[in-house]
């Protein structure tokens, strides 16, 4: 079973193990705009961009591989003109799904480094067709991709509802639920201030202004 963490010295909470298994199931299945095999290729391209190693055969276009690698490796280098060019090639929904898959993979891979264990092998893809369900309420706005409502980090992937849901699913077990973020005196394994110090330093190293 994936994400057993048997070689890790500390106990990994069951909600994190369950979360990661659910994300692996999602990664293997067809998404909204990409098949399971294509989502696996997106993940491989993202890992190749971030960690190097031999490039592997891919079913993706050069633009999709470039997007996954760039988001995986150095997102602070991304600029509006590049997003527009990639989205002109792929379409905004496919680009947003790449952002979702790649960003959650980065979270899982980083967690493994942090607790001192090797990255989990990617799952075998499952057959099936993407749902291709449109989000009719999404509109262009102040951000670089269309979204539902005003530009907001919790709505960033709302052009592809399944990706937005998966983002929120990760946020709670790894940090706090969106609602829980109002609790400034929260104390778990870390105090809230300690959590925010870690969050802010992570963002500083990633050069993420937001």
């Amino acid at each position: 079973m994936p994400f057993a963490f048997t070689d890790v010295e500390v106990e990994i909470r069951s909600n994190i193990r369950t979360l990661f298994r659910r994300e692996w199931d999602r990664l293997a299945l067809a998404g909204t705009w990409w098949s399971g095999a294509e989502r696996g290729d997106i993940a491989r391209a993202a890992r190749h961009g971030r960690f190097g190693g031999d490039a592997q055969p891919s079913s993706l276009s050069d633009g999709a591989i470039e997007a996954a690698a760039a988001i995986g490796a150095r997102p602070a280098a991304i600029r509006r003109e590049w997003v527009e060019r990639v989205a002109n090639d792929l379409g905004y929904p496919r680009y947003v799904e790449i952002v979702g898959v790649t960003s959650r993979l980065a979270a899982i891979d980083t967690f493994h480094a942090a607790v001192g264990t090797a990255r989990e092998p990617l799952p075998e893809p499952e057959p099936g067709e993407p749902s291709r369900s449109e989000e009719p309420q999404a509109r262009p706005g102040a951000a670089w991709v269309p979204m539902v409502g005003g530009a907001s980090i919790t709505q960033a992937l709302s052009l592809v509802d399944a990706e937005s849901t998966a983002q929120e699913d990760m946020h709670g077990p790894l940090y706090l639920t969106y609602e829980g973020m109002a609790e400034l005196d929260y104390v778990g394994g870390l105090s809230r201030a300690q959590m925010e110090l870690v969050a802010a330093r992570t963002s500083a190293i990633n050069e993420c202004f937001y």
Partner: peptide, 12 residues
């Protein structure tokens, strides 16, 4: 977990 979450959020 917090580092992992912000690796995700920074990319988004």
């Amino acid at each position: 977990g917090v580092i992992a979450n912000f690796e995700m959020m920074n990319r988004i």
